[in-house]
């Protein structure tokens, strides 16, 4: 048994230590907002926060999360920056198929938490690991600026 802190709650899991956080979340805890896109830290669909840092949960074993706080898309409504990001996503009407968007929102929230006024270059640096096959990039960029303005 491994104990993980997920969205503020301790959860006991019967899983191997090397199981990636992604699959523990999706297949054991059934928190399916976090998505699988590549399994190789190449697309960002699986982005969650580990102690506030954006990480790729598809390549991070649960052992690495013991004693730390995992926060997922399902928790963003309780996060001040997360709320602003979600509101901006709605205002700009960012989503298309929606599959990448949990990861985009988690990456954007981590960015805005550490950098209140990101420039376009900052956005490129923080968000280029998150692929959107639907090409919502211009709207993601606009929504990040919008959230930054609202948070200022």
């Amino acid at each position: 048994m491994i104990t993980l802190n997920i969205n503020g709650k301790d959860v006991q899991l019967d899983a191997a230590e090397d199981m990636p956080i992604l699959w523990a979340l999706r297949d054991i805890v059934h928190l399916t907002g976090t998505k699988f896109g590549c399994g190789m830290a190449l697309c960002g669909a699986c982005t969650v926060h580990l102690d506030g840092q954006a990480i790729r949960s598809c390549v991070t074993p649960i052992a690495a999360a013991v004693g730390k706080k995992i926060s997922t898309i399902e928790h963003m409504q309780n996060d001040k920056v997360g709320q602003a990001v979600q509101a901006a996503w709605s205002a700009v009407d960012v989503v298309q198929c929606g599959y990448c968007q949990s990861g985009q929102i988690m990456a954007a929230t981590a960015l805005l938490t550490s950098n209140q006024k990101p420039t376009d270059e900052d956005i490129d640096a923080a968000m280029s690991g998150n692929i959107c096959r639907c090409g919502t990039y211009p709207r993601i960029r606009a929504a990040i600026h919008e959230a930054a303005n609202k948070l200022a």
Binding site: T32, T34, K35, F36, I73, W89, S90, G98
Partner: peptide
């Protein structure tokens, strides 16, 4: 379909 795709509750086949 915006709200559910923003808060992670939208259901895809994978889910």
């Amino acid at each position: 379909d915006g709200p559910e795709k923003i808060n992670g509750t939208a259901m895809f086949g994978q889910d």
